[in-house]
Design a binder for these strands. Structure first.
Length: 199
DNA sequence: AGCCAGGCTACCG
DNA sequence: CGGTAGCATGGC
């Protein structure tokens, strides 16, 4: 028996399809086409920075503020002065750090010229740790990488699958070995865990 | 009034 | 290597 698969079915039955990643304030359950273009891809990347240790609601306000000022474009983010950028994303919290981080990841994004980044390249960017790197790979580039966050650890601990001392990659391996390597599945599963643990 | 959110860096022992 | 202070807004 595969407990990981069973739990997925259980969560899906309980919460339904979640429709991550939200684009333009809307979730699209059972539709994994986002990002449809580079504009949406870049919006997701900014979103992964903005939502660090913050509720999506707060990150979304910051994203709306960027959108209102027509700043969801790499060139605009880079040319904007850091203080102004920080002010614009204020509601996401940690706005000074996140303004720096947004510029850093934007530089890499432009250097890529459309190419998919490696995990190592992402991790070299200041402000991008393991979870953010994997979120970018999964949600912005549709790569079959399982994202491990606080909720995931709590969830696995609750289900007695981990003790709590396992390291990030160790936990990641549990999912990646027991599930078909599918970005849609990894996308949905992670979103379902968040839905389950949020309350 | 506190606690916690879809973390990461820097620095400590 | 592991552990922790600092970063900050907003909802409950």
């Amino acid at each position: 028996m595969n407990k990981i698969k069973e739990l997925y079915e259980e969560l899906l039955k309980k919460h339904g399809y979640q429709g991550w990643w939200p684009i333009n304030n809307s979730y699209t359950p059972k539709d994994y086409s986002a990002p449809r273009d580079e504009k949406e891809r870049y919006e997701i990347i900014l979103g992964t920075i903005l939502t660090q240790n913050t509720t999506w609601g707060n990150a979304e306000k910051a994203l709306n503020s960027l959108r209102k000022n027509h700043l969801v474009k790499p060139e605009r983010i880079l040319s904007l002065n850091e203080k102004e950028l920080a002010k614009t994303i204020r509601s996401a919290g940690y706005y000074n750090q996140k303004a720096k981080y947004a510029k850093e990841i934007t530089k890499l994004y432009l250097e890529l010229k459309g190419r998919i980044p490696t995990r190592q390249e992402l991790l070299r960017v200041k402000g991008v740790g393991k979870e953010t790197a994997d979120s970018i790979l999964l949600y912005a580039y549709k790569q079959p990488v399982f994202v491990i966050d606080k909720y995931t650890k709590k969830f696995l601990h609750r289900e007695k699958i981990i003790t709590g001392n396992e390291k990030y990659e160790e936990i990641q391996r549990i999912f990646q070995e027991k599930l078909r390597k599918s970005y849609k599945k990894f996308n949905e599963y992670h979103a379902l865990i968040v839905a389950e643990m949020k309350k």
